[in-house]
Amino acid sequence: MTGAAMRRTCVLILSVLAGPAMADDKQFTLDVDPALVEAGVMQHLLPRFSLKTGIKVNIAGGEADLMLGDGGAPAVAQGDSVWGLSEASDPDAVRFSEWLLSEVGVRTLESFGGGFGAPVVEVAAGEEVAITGDLALGETAALTHCGRCHVVNESNRMNAIGSTPSFGMMRNFSDWDLRFATFWELKPHGAFTQIDGVTEPFDPERPSPIAPVVMDMAEVDAILAYVASLTPADLGAPIQSQ
């Protein structure tokens, strides 16, 4: 099958599988690497995204609102192969980018099997983290930079994304301090985070798929100090097997 014929086949298959007809203002066009379609990954992801959000995904070769393929922010991996998301301005395309990079999106991708998942960044274990910083600045910075996804405290409980863990829940992690001190190295943060004087600027060919998070180390230290002041969320007693 020629490349053009494969593309037309992908468009036909995914137009059907992306979900039922939806309102014209809740849709976007996606140009996706045919290899992901052949593997069945997109047939697995798109209907679940559409069911969750009510947004229709229209597959279109060439110019589109969003591209998933070579270049862009790393989003999908299988072995040594990595596919990235381009930068998007269409709000529905941005919503898909955020979903695919979120914890729910990653779990959905991993549930397909076949070795597919999000690109992994390893963080060294056993490092000691010094906790200093301004608690007031930390709360403000956390709400500003992290609150669009995570529940930081009661003030943004209704504005965060429910699929992401709250600060209180993450405070239960044994390595919570290392996670917060190097969060930009953990998926999916590296794809859209810039730390002044620490991270490299985004590659022009691999820009942030969403509005980037930009902060300096003073804010990172302050957030770490603020999280240290939080009481870990009560997750309840472990379930006892019968």
Rank of each mutant, 00 (worst) to 15 (best):
Q43H: 07
V16D: 07
A18I: 07
Q27K: 13
D25K: 08
I55T: 13
G62F: 02
L45C: 05
I59H: 05
G54Y: 02
K56H: 07
L45A: 03
K26G: 07
I55H: 08
V37M: 08
P20N: 06
S50D: 00
E63H: 03
G40Y: 08
E63Y: 04
P47W: 02
I59D: 03
A23F: 03
A35T: 12
D33H: 08
G19S: 10
R48E: 13
S15I: 04
S15C: 11
N58E: 12
S15V: 04
L36S: 01
V37Q: 04
L51G: 02
K56R: 15
D25E: 15
D31K: 05
S15N: 12
G61K: 13
D24G: 10
N58Q: 11
Q43A: 14
A21M: 13
I59G: 01
P34G: 03
Q43R: 05
G61R: 08
L45P: 00
A39E: 11
T29S: 15
K26W: 07
Q27L: 11
K26C: 14
E38V: 10
E38G: 11
P20D: 09
A18W: 04
K26P: 09
P20T: 04
L36M: 06
V37P: 03
F49R: 01
G62W: 01
I59F: 10
M22S: 15
V16L: 15
G54L: 06
H44Y: 01
E38L: 09
F28Q: 04
E38T: 08
A35C: 07
N58C: 03
A60W: 09
F49G: 01
L17P: 05
G19P: 10
A18L: 11
F28P: 07
L17Y: 10
